[in-house]
Design a protein around this nucleic acid. Structure first.
Length: 664
DNA sequence: TCCCTCCGTCGGGCT
DNA sequence: GACGGAGGGA
């Protein structure tokens, strides 16, 4: 039977009196995507082709055509990306665009779940576990039930957490995950399976969820309850998903559910930039999208506006090396530009000095520091450079690597707040009790148990009168009751805890001045919040980078340089880009070299890194590396082999006796 | 029972 | 650099 299609009148009227001259500001391909109306659409957008711009204009265009902004849902990879897009849409149109709902999958799911948690048997104020909370929980279960396995090589908490997450996101059995990625732990299959069950039961029993639960529980909620699904999806008149190449099957299911009433779904992405296979993404998913949706319109953006031609040439020639070919060749009309350079340094520090010196030189040529970035494979690959930059007083901000809320002292303070929000949070109780002098694992777990069995009594009533730590327990319970009884602001609660915690911190860490400074910065940041639980949720869903606080102060003098992992550089661009530690075993990662598809992903990673640059690109590597055994020779990335000189120019570093200087 | 120190081990990229 | 286990002193 034929279906009726409801069509509104504005379709015929539009394009006559738009506030924004779309035709003049966009190319034909972009215009097609912006003007796309109803029904599913796939936009394949190569690097630098104006993908963000297209999304921004489409949001504005929908709003101009009378779509209520709050009925548009924009799913992005980070909340920062969503915010930037909506700000830009506000700039091109007006304030209405601020009302568009946008954020990450996790963020949106978190919102829905807080509304409907009770349907799933969770408390409405369920606690969200971040990466380290989840690992602590796993550790807790592991040491309670599996301590006897300690002599055999049993996976560590972060490995266990990675295994569990991989099972969920790639939809594989434990056996498959272990056999594929962790064969040495196959002998522990049954114990790990049991631990997984206990972990899930623990989360259930204690009303907490980890990152993966946000996605899986939302799917359960929407696929198991048609009323709720319809209610939620009918609010989403238009759904747009950015970076679709990096969503996995679980997220694809969610997208389908979110858009299941209006079916106005537009996904945007680039198969050549898929770099999240470890989270279950598969670059083939995006190409299979049209198979899932009848009448799916396919649109392509191919003209690159970002990079100078020599940079694109290098990027294209890298892509030629993929085992699994991509149907992709970016072109640009920009013909000028220097050749990308490859720089060989004799060791890591020389590489750092080269980068630092080059940065200073370019800054003198009026390229602002914040229009330059240094990219690397692993969070740790920049330690030496960070040291060098600090020495030279070059301000920088680092993305990726350790997060602010992962530092021990921040987690200590957060644990205090968490027991106030949720007094049944055993992991948090355990952590704060262990901080008391004279209390170790044994005493802490006895006290936690006592608290669990005496829910209506507080820590104050615990029997510690005869113990050496009585005094500190009194101080602790006083601090906790101060903030739970008075309904004070998050910043006041935080300051109260910091007052209690400061002596603990001084006693525990040698570098306490720096840590206490962090805590003050944290208190400052919390002033923007009115609710404690909101603060905790935001910190979890949008983890701050560890260096964010330090840079905050110096940023006033000069906008800082960016240091970032390639994964965190996604979607961003700079005038000048340095890619450091471009070594075989680093990029590609040593764990990828025996697997063709994993190698391809590493290659795409390098491709993503190169295409972040507009004008200048420097790739560098040291020929020697240090390890615990001493110094050894290292080789440049295999991806850089056989790239002809007319595409990638080789540079030598020449040291002058008195002053280090760059060679020709 | 707790705390400190020493030492071998380790899959990392992100929400 | 962080984790986790071992060993010794308080």
């Amino acid at each position: 039977m034929k279906k009726f299609i409801l069509q509104t009148d504005n379709r015929s009227q539009r394009s006559s009196n738009y506030q924004i001259p779309y035709r003049e500001q966009l190319n034909t391909q972009q215009l097609g995507a912006v003007m796309h109306d109803d029904g599913p659409a796939l936009v394949i957008a190569g690097a630098g082709t104006g993908k963000t711009r297209t999304l921004v204009y489409r949001v504005a265009r929908l709003v101009e055509d009378g779509t209520p902004p709050e009925s548009i849902l924009l799913l992005t990879f980070t909340r920062r990306a969503a915010r930037e897009m909506l700000n830009r849409a506000t700039d091109v149109l007006d304030n209405r665009c601020k009302k568009v709902r946008g954020g990450t999958f996790h963020h949106y799911c978190n919102l829905l779940l807080h509304r409907y948690a009770e349907e799933l048997g969770y408390p409405r104020n369920f606690t969200l576990l971040d990466q380290s909370d989840a690992m602590d929980t796993i550790h807790h279960i592991r040491s309670t039930y599996y301590h006897h396995l300690r002599l055999k090589r049993f996976p560590q908490k972060q490995t266990l957490s990675a295994i569990f997450s991989s099972m969920i996101n790639t939809r594989r059995s434990l056996y498959e995950v272990l056999a594929d990625g962790y064969p040495r732990f196959l002998e522990h299959h049954d114990a790990v399976a049991e631990l997984f069950d206990r972990y899930n039961r623990y989360k259930r029993d204690n009303g907490v969820m980890d990152f993966d639960d946000l996605l899986t529980q939302t799917r359960v909620l929407l696929s198991g309850n048609d009323d709720i699904r319809r209610k939620v999806a009918s609010q989403n008149r238009y759904v747009m998903v950015d970076e679709y190449q990096d969503t996995n099957n679980l997220q694809a299911d969610l997208v389908a559910l979110f858009s299941s009433v209006h079916e106005n779904l537009m996904v945007v992405g680039d198969d050549a930039q898929s770099i999240y296979a470890f989270r279950g993404a598969n670059f083939k998913n995006i190409l299979a999208f049209p198979d899932l949706y009848d009448n799916c319109k396919i649109l392509k953006l191919e003209e690159n506006y970002r990079s100078a031609e020599p940079i694109l040439k290098l990027a294209n020639s890298l892509m030629d090396k993929a085992n699994d070919k991509f149907d992709k060749n970016l072109y640009t009309r920009r013909s000028s530009g220097d050749l990308p350079g490859i720089v060989k340094a004799s060791n890591e520090n020389e590489q750092s000095r080269f980068v630092a010196q080059m940065l200073l030189q370019l800054r003198e040529q009026e390229i602002p520091l914040n229009d330059m970035a240094v990219l690397f494979r692993n969070g740790r690959d920049s330690y030496d450079l960070e040291w060098e930059l600090n020495k030279l007083n070059i301000p920088f901000r680092k993305f990726g690597g350790q997060k602010f809320a992962e530092a021990a002292h921040i987690r200590d303070v957060l644990a205090h707040l968490r027991v106030v929000v949720n007094p049944e949070d055993q992991i948090a109780w355990n952590r704060i009790l262990m901080l008391v002098d004279g209390i170790g694992p044994k005493t802490a777990s006895e006290l936690v148990n006592w608290l669990r069995l005496n829910k209506n009594r507080g820590l104050r009533e615990a029997d510690v009168a005869s113990k050496s730590y009585k005094k500190q327990i009194d101080q602790l319970s006083e601090a906790l009751s101060d903030i739970s009884t008075k309904k004070n602001k998050p910043s006041e609660a935080l300051e109260r805890i910091i007052a209690y915690y400061t002596p603990v911190c001084e006693n525990r860490y040698d570098d306490h001045p720096k840590r206490i400074k962090d805590l003050e910065a944290f208190a400052g940041l919390s002033r923007n919040y009115t609710g404690l639980d909101q603060l905790l949720q935001d910190l979890t869903l949008e983890p701050l980078d560890a260096s964010a606080m330090e840079t905050e102060a110096s940023a006033k003098d000069e906008p800082p340089l960016t240091l970032t992992t390639i994964h965190s550089a996604k979607g961003l661009e700079w005038d000048t880009v340095f890619i450091i530690q471009c070594l075989d075993g680093v990029l590609p990662s040593g764990y990828a070299v025996e697997n063709a598809s994993a190698l391809d992903e590493e290659l795409r990673l390098l491709y993503v890194a190169c295409t972040r640059a507009r004008e200048r690109l420097f790739i560098s590597y040291p020929v020697t590396r240090e390890s615990s055994y001493g110094e050894f020779f290292s080789n440049p990335s295999r991806f850089l082999e056989d790239i002809p000189e007319y595409i990638l120019e080789t540079w030598k570093l020449v040291e002058e006796p008195d002053q280090k200087r760059l060679g020709e």
